[in-house]
Design a protein around this nucleic acid. Structure first.
Length: 323
DNA sequence: AATAGGGTCAACCGCTTGTGT
DNA sequence: CACACAAGCGGTTGACCCTAT
């Protein structure tokens, strides 16, 4: 029970620290300090106090100023809203371009190279280049405007690279003339055709490119999953998958799991199709790929739903290529 | 007119980093 | 070096607003 002891150590540490200090942590839930939107009166009190005394200690500030808020809340309110040099209003086109440029250069600083989930954008560093704008404001602007704009233009907002086009990928696959023992779209994983195609497919499935250092690992991982499943074909396989060192993307898991089902003797095709259908549905209806015409997702979905079970792999594959 | 759904953004939460002792 | 505390940071939430039906 390693995971349990880890959590417990952490919790014990926090609890003992609280007892030692003889007070609850800042902004604890049990505290009766006010939360939520600030009133104009509170703003006035905070502004007046800071203009008169500054903010050398945020923790001590609310008590001295007579505010029933925690220091953290006061700090946020001052920095993001009350500061006199705050520039309010819409972002200009120049600001937007600058944000995108800064995001592409500063944004890819990886805190931990090994895991994309830990990719942190340096909003504060970006904000420091835009006088009067706060990191919070830029972060919101990015998430609500710029991100969507880039996606619409077919650019991955995380990498600033063009997103691979599904039609192009299917066309490429069709030229490879693969045996259709498994759905052709899945073949690259087990046939090891070429790295670029596999990478494109992984990008397509995950919506973002895999980090370069782990790409080959992902390929080996997929192949190893196939081998392990072919050898064991038992519930132990899931245990194996859960214990490998490389963390797979969840979508890859789903494809891998589907692929495993058909790899050994091909008797689990219906399950494979079920997974493919739901996977395709999720990919095309929920995460609509940028750069596609509006009809494409629906066409593919219809094609999958109407053809997959009745006509078998070859027709299914053909129907994909016709889109 | 009512309301469902989506967009926006201020504020919060939890974790990390920096600093002083 | 270890610890305690403050401050900073990025991700997420939820209230509010607008628009389409």
């Amino acid at each position: 029970m390693e995971w349990l002891s880890f959590d417990r150590r952490r919790v014990d540490k926090l609890v003992s620290e609280c007892w030692k200090m003889g007070r609850p942590p800042c902004c604890s839930e049990s505290s009766d300090l006010k939360k939520g939107p600030w009133t104009p009166e509170e703003d006035e009190v905070l502004t007046t106090y800071i203009q008169k005394h500054g903010h050398e200690s945020w923790r001590a500030l609310p008590k001295r100023a007579g505010l029933n808020r925690c220091g953290k809340s006061c700090r946020l309110r001052w920095i993001n809203y009350l500061r006199p040099d705050i520039k309010r209003g819409n972002f200009s086109e120049d600001e937007e371009i600058l944000i995108i440029n800064l995001h592409s250069t500063l944004g890819n600083n990886l805190k931990k190279i090994v895991n994309l989930e830990h990719l942190h954008y340096r909003w504060s560093r970006i904000a420091s280049q835009l006088p009067g704008r706060t990191d919070n404001e830029i972060k919101n602007f990015w998430n609500t405007h710029v991100r969507k704009k880039l996606l619409k233009a077919g650019i991955d907002p995380k990498t600033h690279q063009p997103v691979p086009n599904i039609t192009f990928l299917l066309d490429t696959i069709s030229k490879l003339n693969l045996p259709l023992k498994v759905p052709a779209i899945m073949s690259p994983w087990i046939n090891n055709i070429n790295d670029q195609l596999l990478n494109n497919l992984l990008q397509f499935v995950n919506m973002t490119p895999l980090p370069k250092p782990t790409f080959l690992d992902s390929q080996c991982y997929m192949e190893e999953m196939v081998n392990q499943y072919a050898i064991n074909r038992s519930e132990d396989w899931m245990e194996y998958v859960n214990n490998v060192s490389l963390e797979p993307q969840s979508e890859c898991d789903s494809i891998g799991a589907s692929l495993m089902g058909s790899y050994g003797n091909g008797t689990e095709i219906p399950e494979l199709f079920t997974d493919l259908k739901s996977m395709s549905h999720n990919l095309f209806m929920e995460n609509q790929l940028p750069g596609m015409s509006p009809e494409e997702p629906m066409n593919l979905k219809n094609s999958l739903e109407s053809n997959a079970f009745e006509t078998g792999f070859d027709d299914y594959y053909e129907s994909l290529l016709k889109i």
